[in-house]
């Protein structure tokens, strides 16, 4: 009997442990820290690096990269090519994010109830800055029982889809290697 109780207890603990929870918590925590740094009148290099981590840490770049490259092309790539692309793409996105910090500033934010499906979730928020409202949507996938973001939609414009359209138009005239070269060049440029 005692053994059964212990097993039941362990099962409950495991269930709670395995539950990835509400992805809104992740977004809220990140945003809180980010807003403090964004409000600073002077930012040190350390602050900028911290902001870069805060903005991008939530994202799974291998997912974002896979969604940004046309599916047919992505499937034909070797895993080395895919890893190379993810690395360059991550660098490019991370570097460009700190160039547009104003996009993340807000005076107030209201979070909507998250839409959670089996392995995916969406967190939407209404953000006000200088009296202007924007609608943000974070898209998450469940990876190893952790919510990992792979898209940020600002006012109906999806980051992943936007990249895909751009990459698609490049791939119409150029090869994947040329695209990789462009992304790597761009990542180094922004730096």
């Amino acid at each position: 009997m005692k053994l059964k109780v212990i097993w039941f207890f362990l099962l409950c603990v495991a269930t709670i442990w395995a539950n990835p929870g509400d992805p809104t918590v992740l977004v809220k925590a990140k945003d809180k820290e980010l807003q403090v740094l964004l409000r600073k009148s002077t930012r040190s290099e350390k602050d900028v690096q911290k902001m870069k981590v805060l903005i991008n840490n939530m994202f799974d770049f291998s997912l974002l990269a896979a969604k940004s490259v046309p599916t047919a092309t992505w499937k034909d790539l070797s895993s080395t090519q895919q890893n190379e692309f993810v690395s360059a793409f991550k660098q490019m996105v991370e570097n460009s994010s700190v160039k547009q910090l104003e996009v993340y500033r807000s005076d107030s934010t209201i979070y909507e109830k998250p839409k959670i499906r089996k392995n995916s979730a969406q967190v939407a928020a209404q953000v006000w800055y200088k009296g202007k409202a924007s609608h943000l949507v974070y898209k998450f996938d469940l990876v190893d029982d952790q919510w990992r973001a792979w898209d940020l939609i600002i006012d109906d414009l999806s980051t992943a889809r936007n990249y895909r359209e751009q990459f698609n138009s490049i791939l119409r005239t150029k090869s994947f290697d040329e695209l990789l070269e462009i992304v790597q060049k761009k990542a180094a440029e922004i730096k």
Binding site: K67, T71, D151, D156, S158, R161, R164, E165
Partner: peptide, 18 residues
């Protein structure tokens, strides 16, 4: 469909719906 890059579906379809 857009996330899965299904052919023929555009961002415009989504915006029209919204």
């Amino acid at each position: 469909a857009l996330d899965d890059d299904v052919e023929g579906v555009s961002q415009n379809d989504l915006l029209t719906l919204r």
